[in-house]
């Protein structure tokens, strides 16, 4: 049955942890609140990582469905938000690998588009600065890009970023520095 997902009344004021407990017992409406609460930041993350809005949507949908399946074993050692970031980042990395594999049988292998967000029907509402930043991001080395997005757009702690990207904190800081340097050069010179 196809149903609309609207805002249930009471669940909206519950913290993530409680919603996750309920969702783990099969409460779809609680899970729907979590999905609505986190899809914006996860989709931004996936868009930045994959550079293609359609792939990003697929990645985030897959991540949520995978989370739903794994909720019964989610032990709340990490916050739900962090747990979802991990799943989404892994999903994006898998999709990138698949897309970039020379053995891929995909009929259309899209390059990472610099203007992924500037679809024709959206360009009017898109801030020029955002487009420029997205372009500059697409030029970055993938490792630097993911560190920069997780830190500067999503605000995650260094330790968390190191864990997600399977590197060390100093490596994360080094990549961040190089990403800032490249973005600054691309976006505007020293004043």
């Amino acid at each position: 049955m196809i149903e609309r997902t609207a805002s249930p009344r009471l669940e909206c004021d519950l913290p993530d942890g409680l919603l996750a407990v309920r969702a783990a017992e099969g409460d779809e409406d609680s899970f729907a609140v979590l999905v609505r609460r986190h899809s914006r930041s996860l989709l931004t993350l996936a868009c930045c990582m994959l550079g293609n809005p359609q792939d990003a949507e697929d990645a985030v949908q897959d991540a949520f469905v995978s989370a739903w399946r794994r909720l019964p074993e989610y032990r709340h050692s990490a916050e739900f938000r962090t747990w979802m970031y991990r799943i989404t980042v892994n999903r994006c990395l898998t999709m990138r690998r698949r897309r970039l594999s020379p053995l891929s049988l995909n009929t259309v292998v899209e390059p990472v588009a610099g203007d992924a967000w500037s679809q024709p029907d959206r360009s009017a509402e898109r801030d020029a600065a955002t487009v420029a930043l997205t372009r500059a991001l697409a030029e970055l080395d993938a490792g630097q890009r993911i560190c920069w997005i997780l830190r500067e757009v999503q605000g995650l702690p260094y330790r968390e970023i190191a864990h997600m990207t399977r590197t060390s904190e100093p490596t994360v800081r080094g990549r961040l520095f190089r990403a800032r340097r490249s973005l600054q050069e691309a976006m505007g010179p020293w004043r």
Binding site: A6, S7, P8, R9
Partner: peptide
């Protein structure tokens, strides 16, 4: 049991 939703 479907909740009665607030229409957005």
């Amino acid at each position: 049991i479907a909740a009665r939703y607030d229409e957005p």
